[in-house]
């Protein structure tokens, strides 16, 4: 396969530069939104315990039919505080970009008041 005078045809230095740029470009993310939930007035945050749960979904070329990873993250959060009130919930939704695919991530962190 001949690459002629293009960047791919100019030897190992060009390929190394290209690979470095690809690596740099491939570590990008997008933070879509952060939501700070209400802090229940009756919550005694001094006695509260921090809880955190994450959910993620790998998507290839945009073909995905559901967003269940959000519900799974919520279920994980609830499982860490059974019988207690979960308040001050911070919800973060972000995407990590990749090669022809990406990973959607949801993160909840909150106070568990038992």
């Amino acid at each position: 396969m001949k690459f002629g005078n293009s960047i791919l045809g100019r030897g190992p230095k060009a390929l190394a530069l290209g690979a470095t740029l690809m690596w740099l470009g491939g570590c990008t993310h997008a933070l879509h939104m952060v939501h700070e939930g209400d802090l229940s007035p009756s919550a005694k945050l001094g006695e509260a315990r921090r809880v955190m749960a994450e959910g993620e979904q790998r998507v290839v070329m945009g073909f995905v039919g559901q967003t269940d990873y959000v519900d799974q993250a919520r279920a994980k959060l609830e499982a860490q505080c059974r019988g207690g009130q979960i308040t001050g919930i911070q919800s973060r939704y972000s995407t990590s970009h990749g090669f022809l695919s990406w990973t959607n991530r949801v993160r909840f962190q909150a106070y568990c008041v038992e």
């Binding site: 209400d38 559901q66 967003t67 959000v70 919930i89 919800s91 939704y93 959607n104």
Partner: peptide
């Protein structure tokens, strides 16, 4: 093709 646009969670 479904994608999430935003979400929020209030005190559980």
């Amino acid at each position: 093709c479904v994608h999430l646009q935003s979400l929020s969670q209030s005190t559980i």
